[in-house]
Design a protein around this nucleic acid. Sequence first.
DNA 1: CGTAAATAGGACCACAGCGGTCCCCTTTCC
DNA 2: GGAAAGGGGACCGCTGTGGTCCTATTTACG
Lengths: 165, 165
Amino acid sequence: MLRMTKQADYGIVLMTRMAGEAGRQFTAGELAEETQLPAPTVSKILKILTRQELLDSHRGVKGGYSLARDTAAITMAEIIGALDGPIAITECIDDSPGECVQEPSCAVRANWQRINDAIRLALENVTLAEMVHPLPQRLVTLGGRPSPIAADRLAAGAAGAEALR
Amino acid sequence: MLRMTKQADYGIVLMTRMAGEAGRQFTAGELAEETQLPAPTVSKILKILTRQELLDSHRGVKGGYSLARDTAAITMAEIIGALDGPIAITECIDDSPGECVQEPSCAVRANWQRINDAIRLALENVTLAEMVHPLPQRLVTLGGRPSPIAADRLAAGAAGAEALR
DNA sequence: CGTAAATAGGACCACAGCGGTCCCCTTTCC
DNA sequence: GGAAAGGGGACCGCTGTGGTCCTATTTACG
């Protein structure tokens, strides 16, 4: 598992669709039809994204939604965070004053922080712009060997995203 | 959110505890008491981990569980995968022959694959051994500047884990 | 050889949270 | 002033998770 919710999934689909024609304004119904997602749900998601300041909304007739920022300035982490709450694999991270079981697990906490950071980072380093224009292949084939290629891809992904901004 | 289940969380706590005295054998009750986790649940998790060949079990009196491999050869990804199923943020990854909404979202799929890979990688690059002996600080402070530090940390984390093996 | 201590394997249940719908209000254009 | 849009909730079914319990089966030991 280790899933994000469908809301976040849908949110990314919607944002990506909007990023395809950045600057333009879309109505909820329009987006629902184009993405084939249930209209009420689309509307709900757009409202949340607006409240989180990822979208601008215009009420009234001829109203609709548009991206609040440049496509390169909106990351997956933000969208997921807006719809699914803080990005953290474990629960005992945020605060939890209580006695988190015992020492062994708490000795573990520092490591979880690292893991959470790594994941948040991976998500922060993918922008909406990249979702529309997939990264070139070179980022995937930068490495060479079968195992270390992974590390290379990770670094390359981050660096690549950085370069795109 | 973006959470993993408590099962996986508990599983890591248990495995980490066992890694503290590698080679030794623990009974389910013993581990439950030491970690302050509910005994039946601990038992359930240990069974699953055994079935996934992360633990060896010995039945009968004087029985118990012990790590199936060296602590450096067991990764977070394996433990989580064993308890929570395949590690993938999105659902439409595995197979799903159906029509995954439309083109826009499917154009997105390649990028999701990258993100999933990055996360899986982050999890694969943390071994049980590291959970017991936290990594030195240098891995966190390798970078320098506020923003690019992130990319450096990511790469450093992966590389560091690699080096530990 | 029998008993106790351990794992193996399920069946089972309660409940939170997610996915999804619907309704009513407000805003704005024509 | 009416129609078309978003704003803000209330609401509800259902899946899956967290957790318990029961019944084999295995094995050490007296």
